[in-house]
Amino acid sequence: MRRRSLLLTVPAGLLTLAGCGDGSSDKAQPGDSPSAEASPTASAKVVDGPLPEITAGTKFGEKPTVAKGPGKPSTDLAVKTVLPGSGTSVAEGDYVQADYLGQIWDTAQVFDNSYDRGEPLVIRLQQGSVIDGWRIGLAGKKVGSRVEMAIPPALGYGSEGRPGIKGTDTMVFVIDVRDTFNGKSSAKGEEVAQSDAKLPEVGTNTDGKAPEITVPKADAPKKLVSQYILEGDGPEVKLEDKLLLQYKGVLWDGGKEFDSTYARGELAEFPLQQLIKGWQDGLTGKKVGSRVMLVVPPDLGYGDQESGAIPANSTLVFSLDILAKV
């Protein structure tokens, strides 16, 4: 079982089944901060140090070894860009994909790291989704950067602490910022030929704008269609994954749009197992970083039930950009 990161303030709520076009939320709802001490303050001060030395694993992407903190830590948030990146800047409210190691200032005891799991964390930099030290300290950093920070309890888990982290502990993190995503993100895979005139054609633009979906004037297929439009090179999606997606859905009959993350300017976090069967079957096995076109027949969608702007017995067409596993 995948180990849960300590970075979340509390477990986020999950989505209801088949949240497309039925008026339900398309993203997990953030929980409350764990204590008053951990709540953000507009006056949080960011300083350059002190910070402990990184003694080994000094390259981006390598698991670091970090010394004990030198003397007393600052009561403010200490942040340093150890290795500057040249990619997109991270903004508060964005999702960030990062590898990290966290340890205690006084003892150098490591309490969590993603390097050993071999899977980076994807988390949103917003209040209630991540500890405030990360939310404040990573804003403005560029993809490709290694960032070190020392987070006082007030910007971490407060006086309550966490298992292995006392309420008086300053936490030290080394963070490799691998990617960032927001409502203007697109998949960046290799374009795949669309040669079947009986199937919809999906745009291949990667500018963050909604791709055009052109539905042919033909009978809808009776079986599920799942095809790459842009093929990425990330890991394959598993049924138990939670995905970060950019998507658009239209009706086969008439091509009318019924749902779109592009229109909302908000990405969607979906536990795949809680979605319509067409999405479960159509996305399982596809690669992260891809744009996938799905044609979902009624029996794998909403069947004979009307759902919001989706009439009963509708065949649905989706363009889905699989940005990351969350």
Rank of each mutant, 00 (worst) to 15 (best):
I229D: 00
K188P: 00
A108M: 09
N205S: 15
G102R: 02
G167F: 02
P271R: 04
D112C: 13
G254N: 05
G13D: 15
G289R: 12
G31T: 13
K217F: 02
Q273L: 15
G87Y: 05
I310M: 05
D219W: 02
P40D: 04
Y247V: 00
S290D: 10
S5F: 01
L320A: 12
G232S: 09
D259F: 05
L275E: 15
E148F: 01
Q280L: 12
T204Q: 12
D299E: 14
Q273P: 01
P50D: 08
G57T: 08
S39Y: 02
V288F: 03
Y228T: 09
N182R: 03
L51K: 08
T16Y: 08
V174A: 09
R162T: 11
K222Q: 15
T65S: 13
I136Q: 12
G208K: 03
V292A: 10
E236G: 06
T168L: 11
T88L: 07
L6K: 07
S33E: 15
G87R: 05
D176W: 03
E212A: 15
D116F: 01
L15N: 10
V110L: 12
A193E: 14
S129W: 13
K238R: 13
G303A: 09
A12S: 11
E37N: 05
V317G: 06
A12I: 11
A309H: 06
K188L: 12
D196M: 10
A324R: 02
T204L: 05
E266N: 09
V296R: 11
A210P: 06
N182S: 09
P120W: 01
W252D: 07
P34W: 01
W279V: 01
P153Y: 00
I104K: 14
E236W: 00
V96L: 09
S35I: 03
V147N: 07
K184V: 14
A108V: 05
G19Q: 07
G61H: 08
A108G: 08
V250Y: 07
G49H: 08
E148Y: 00
G31H: 09
V295A: 07
D26I: 12
R162N: 07
P200F: 03
G232K: 03
D299G: 02
V46H: 07
E148T: 09
Q109F: 11
Q126V: 01
D22R: 11
G61M: 06
A263T: 14
Q109A: 15
L199N: 02
L251R: 07
S319Y: 01
R135C: 09
S186I: 04
P271A: 04
Q273D: 13
Q97H: 00
Q109V: 15
V288E: 10
G87W: 03
